[in-house]
Design a protein around this nucleic acid. Structure first.
Length: 469
RNA sequence: GGCGCCGUGGCCAAGUGGUAAGGCGGCAGACUGCAAAUCUGCUAUUCGUCGGUUCGAUUCCGACCGGCGCCUCCA
């Protein structure tokens, strides 16, 4: 089994990776803030993490993944206030949509999806530890802050040592009375609007709510233990989110918070970061409306390395839709095949090796996908040649299933309703008869009629197949 | 201003100190009654520009041009 190598943001280099106990990778991934459906940029990160967990399993490890759902934060409170709802009323529907979207993109279930509001007690305990350790303080405004000056390692992950506000940097908006502008809130004193929407809890420091960073540390350590094997997220979380997670976790436990940090790059739209503020977001609902399958999105995302910005532009998505059609046709063909050849078996062996090597080399998805397409061409060629080797065929099916079990590029079959399918079959029968009497004009007219209904047909020696397009 | 990333064919995009993966598209051919699917061949003498190191650089170094991201809302 080749060594698994992964880029570690902490060291800024590709390093060998293995879980501490040699068996189970304890993986924490920062999830969505559920005030609005996640957009494709968010999902690029979740797709990266999906591939990561599948690759780790391919390597032979178990994976225990936590993806948190941030269900209390400024934006949620703002929305709840505007709509006269509780935060729960705002977040519940969005959580439902998140999971639907996630399934559409075939992102596997993580083992845990903790909601921040379910871990308030753990967060309070963590803050108490930090206060006891002298690295957190209660300010005049009733909020508790982390004193970054008390944590010498602060800034190691992001390598942002100079914290002065420079020209060009965004200016911090100070809503709270901190001792140091760079200190971050662990616990925020409740404001009237927080109380109004159910975003306030009792604490030793009075009514309040958790700061954003606190939830991840509390949930990660509660569920996975004080030292994670791997912590992943979007590149923008490096600073301040992950920096602050490290500070508050390590200052509390005295142990390393994560053994490895992995960050996925952004999705751009026509060259600009996809973001609400830019106004260029697309979400899964938009894709569905345009007939873009989850499989096509996966192909698109996995065509670029996770540490490189990916530009949603040009005909890229259309290309992925077509590419995935090719994979689906091949899958069908492999399923229906009656036998294989020695060459088919060799191609399968080669594919398995290539995929392992690529994926274990810092998650080189493009390389693995390229190997898959090489295999499809080679296998189509072998299948064209016929062959009756049952062992070779089953080997090809096995490896293809393994690879597609990782990338999931075969789109869901659109199940035409029964009446429509019956109508299509009837048309095909009529066309068959027309062809039998060599009335090709009639046969072509039927085919044209089917195409107008979105049905593509393929004649072959064993009959005519059709598929909805 | 600080930190970092990127610039490869029409589009998306791998990769390596030794002469360019893969997908989409296009062109031609095989197969087909015609298609579709599939297969075959062709489609970057070249990897932003200019220098340098080297026997040799797209790959290393420097400068420049262009694009992007982070510097407490951020996947």
């Amino acid at each position: 089994m080749p060594e698994f190598r992964l880029y570690n943001t902490m060291s800024r280099s590709v390093e060998p990776f293995a879980p501490a106990d040699g068996e189970t990778v304890r993986l924490y991934t920062c999830g969505p803030t559920v005030y609005n459906p996640a957009h494709l940029g968010n999902f690029r990160t979740f797709l990266f993490e999906d591939l990561l967990r599948r690759a780790l399993r391919l390597r032979g490890w178990k994976v225990e993944q936590v993806m948190n759902l941030t269900d209390v934060d400024d934006k949620i409170i703002k929305r709840a206030s505007e709509q006269g709802k509780s935060i729960r009323e705002v977040t519940d529907p969005v959580v439902t949509i998140f999971h639907e979207d996630r399934k559409y993109l075939r992102i596997e279930d993580a083992e845990h999806y903790p909601r921040a509001t379910a871990y308030i007690a753990e967060m309070i305990q963590l803050v108490e530890r930090l206060i006891a350790n002298g690295v957190a303080y209660l300010a005049d405004d009733g909020s508790v802050y982390f004193a970054i000056g008390k944590f010498p390692a602060y800034g190691r992950l992001s390598r942002l040592d100079t914290r002065e506000i420079q020209s060009g940097a965004r200016v911090a908006q100070d809503d709270y009375s901190k001792e140091n502008a760079q200190d971050f809130a662990l616990w925020k004193a409740a404001k009237p609007e927080d109380e109004a929407c159910g975003a306030a809890w009792d604490s030793p420091w009075g009514r309040g709510r958790p700061g954003w960073h606190l939830e991840c540390s509390a949930m990660a350590m509660s569920i996975l233990g004080e030292t994670l094997d791997l912590h992943a997220g979007g590149i923008d979380l490096v600073f301040p989110h992950h920096e602050d997670e490290i500070a508050q976790s390590e200052a509390a436990t005295g142990k390393p918070f994560a053994r490895c940090w992995s960050h996925g790059e952004f999705l751009l739209t026509d060259g600009a970061k996809m973001a609400k503020r830019v106004g260029n977001v697309q979400n899964v609902a938009d894709l569905r409306a345009n007939g873009v399958s989850g499989a096509a999105v996966r192909h698109f995302v996995y065509s670029t390395h996770y540490r490189k910005q990916l530009n949603l532009a040009g005909e890229a998505l259309e290309g992925s839709m077509e590419a995935v059609r090719r994979v689906a046709d091949f899958a069908e063909r492999l399923k229906d095949a009656r036998g294989g050849t020695r060459g088919l078996e060799d191609a399968a062996d080669h594919l398995e090796n290539e995929v392992r090597n690529a994926l274990f080399d810092d998650l080189n998805a493009p390389g693995a996908v390229a190997a898959l397409f090489d295999f499809i061409r080679a296998a189509n060629k072998e299948l064209d040649a016929g062959g009756s080797d049952a062992g070779a065929l089953s080997r090809a099916r096995e490896v293809f299933a393994m690879v597609d079990g990782i990338f999931e590029l075969v789109p869901d079959r659109v199940n035409a309703d029964a009446a429509f399918a019956q109508w299509v079959e009837q048309q095909l029968e009529e066309r068959k008869q027309a062809r039998a009497r060599r009335d090709f004009a009639a046969a072509d007219a039927i085919r044209k009629g089917l195409e107008e209904k979105g049905v593509v047909i393929e004649d072959s020696a064993v009959g005519t197949k059709w598929k909805a397009r």
